[in-house]
Amino acid sequence: MNPHLFTGFIGLSVAMLSIGAVGVLVRRNPLVVFMSIELMLNAANLALVTYGRFTHTMDGQVFALVVIAVAASEVVVGLALITGVFRRGRRLDLDDLSELRE
């Protein structure tokens, strides 16, 4: 494989991570924030697999598999939390959740 593609993969991974981070920072809808987090996890997976491929190890893929499992668990619990919180008449807006201030 063309070694210069390595930089391409890593660049795409970092770009996706940054985009996801911006999404977490600027979006108010908790579902979108959540999807941005998924995006960041995917970016990390891409980096892991890329490094594994170029160093000829399986560790990256195993790690990515574990990350996918963790992400799945996180989605299940997180979505349950979101529905739990917002089922009772709250707007879907994270800025409504500012109890930390008090």
Binding site: V24, V33, L94, L97, E99, L100, R101
Partner: peptide, 11 residues
């Protein structure tokens, strides 16, 4: 500084 908006903290 303590706005309570976690996304500001995250920023």
């Amino acid at each position: 500084f303590q706005t309570g908006y976690f996304r500001e903290y995250a920023t």
